[in-house]
Amino acid sequence: MKISMTVNGKPVSAEVEARTLLVTFIRENLRLTGTHVGCDTSQCGACTIHLNGRAVKSCNILAMQAEGADIVTIEGLAKADGTLHPMQEAFREHHGLQCGFCTPGMVMSAVDLVKNHPNPSEETIRAELDGNLCRCTGYHNIVKAVKAASAKM
């Protein structure tokens, strides 16, 4: 079936199978490989994107359910000139990433977190990030980064 949506500001459309997951559509059809797949039970959050302004695990939704939606992936977060979003910049500044695999999902979740909790406490950040697994950083510097970014967003 044919689907159409806006991804990172550009209209896209494609023929997909009904069972195609949104993350598969993003990675395989659009070749936007910044969105990652780390599990098969929607636990790890590496595939988190923004759908109509909300953080959503894109492995947990069919591509056809995103018909007409406005999608932003990690590739669409920085400015067109390459300037990083304050959350991306804070992750860099505070060493909130190591291998980088969970990072796109973590950043997309964190942006949504700060939108919903403009001045989050450490406790709030930790609670709100519990849908995103990181095996490298021990979360310590991610928490610092989110806190720092919240002051600049």
């Binding site: 990652h36 990690i74 590739e75 977060l77 991306q88 992750f91 980088g100 695999f101 990072t103």
Partner: peptide, 19 residues
């Protein structure tokens, strides 16, 4: 020193095997 590798990871430009 801030990491040289971070920009690519933060912008989705990393290249992992499945990519």
């Amino acid at each position: 020193v801030k990491r040289k590798e971070d920009y690519r990871f933060l912008t989705g430009a990393g290249t992992y095997t499945d990519d």
